[in-house]
């Protein structure tokens, strides 16, 4: 494999000081479902003032290389975890800290099980090991029916963006923000790929693996998170061996968008800086 192949495939961008120029740990920011690395923009800039920051797109999202997307492979979270581990290795990062939003928290934990020294810490924002309720003992927040309804919604809303309409719309309307970047994001929003990602996320159940997670973990959560109820956070807190939780001064499932300062501060305060 040529050097930097994965970095190219995942559209890696590095901000802040070069990792080799500072003692501070590198932060790898991993986006969640439905978005790409852009979601981190304000938080990433704040973190990059002091830390090396690595941004990337999960395969099939954002500006990742669609030609490298293998539909047979990306049917569960382990493929994404493997990608993440390989990417960290290719970039030769020295035990970085993973900051994973939503599903990327789970992906980070899965990656850490296979390689316990991969990360020095996993900071998960609004993570969940299983979204579907499993009565009587587990509350995930959703019924399976909800998930199917959401997949149907995705299908209905994305159907018209399936390849051919997006460029027409983009060409027909004169918008200031019509950049190649935006166009690319639309083109990459392949509804089939998005749906598969949604299925592998919302049908996932990684509860049985949590006790194997040895990496120090910090969970950041917020009020009014419709995706992840507080019961899930509590479940993770008592199940993952080495795990702290911390409530953010923010609401909703996207605190890094709604209140980037609070998230950046919480990340910086929660860092385990080792000698």
């Amino acid at each position: 494999m040529p050097r930097n192949q994965l970095a190219k495939q995942h559209h890696v961008r590095q901000l802040g000081p070069p990792p080799e120029a500072t003692e501070r740990p590198t932060l790898v920011l991993a986006h969640g479902f439905g978005c790409d690395q852009h979601i981190w923009a304000p938080v990433a800039d704040m973190l990059a003032e002091e830390h090396p920051v690595v941004l990337f797109d999960h395969m099939g999202c954002g500006r990742s290389d669609m030609t490298a997307y293998d539909p047979k492979r990306y049917t569960n979270l382990f493929a994404y975890a493997e990608d993440l581990a390989n990417l960290v290795k290719e970039l030769e990062l020295d035990r970085p800290i993973l900051v994973g939003h939503s599903v990327s928290g789970a992906i980070g934990w899965l990656a850490s099980i296979g390689a316990p020294d991969l990360f020095r810490q996993v900071i998960a924002i609004g993570p969940s090991p299983r979204y579907i309720n499993d009565p009587p003992d587990y509350i995930g927040g959703f019924e399976e029916q909800d998930i199917h309804e959401m997949l149907d919604l995705m299908e209905r809303n994305h159907f018209e963006w399936a390849g051919y309409l997006a460029p027409i719309v983009m060409a027909a309307e004169d918008r200031p923000e019509k950049s190649e970047d935006l166009r690319q994001t639309f083109l990459n929003a392949d509804p089939v790929v998005s749906r598969r990602f949604a299925e592998s996320i919302f049908m996932s159940d990684i509860r049985e693996y949590l006790h194997q997670v040895t990496v120090p973990s910090l969970i950041l959560y917020s009020d009014q998170d419709v995706i992840v109820p507080i019961e899930v956070i509590e479940y993770l807190h008592r199940t993952i061996p080495n795990c702290d939780i911390r409530k953010l001064q923010a609401t909703g499932h996207y605190p890094h968008m709604s209140n980037p300062e609070a998230v950046a501060d919480a990340i910086l305060e929660g860092l385990r800086i080792e000698a």
Binding site: G34, F142, M150, V226, I227, Y254, M257
Partner: peptide, 23 residues
């Protein structure tokens, strides 16, 4: 999203809001 069905709330958070902020 607190006034939407659960599926729509998920979809709103997973797709609509990120897209709104991005674009």
């Amino acid at each position: 999203e607190t006034r939407m069905t659960r599926a729509s709330g998920m979809y709103y958070l997973g797709h609509v809001l990120p897209s709104l902020r991005l674009h």
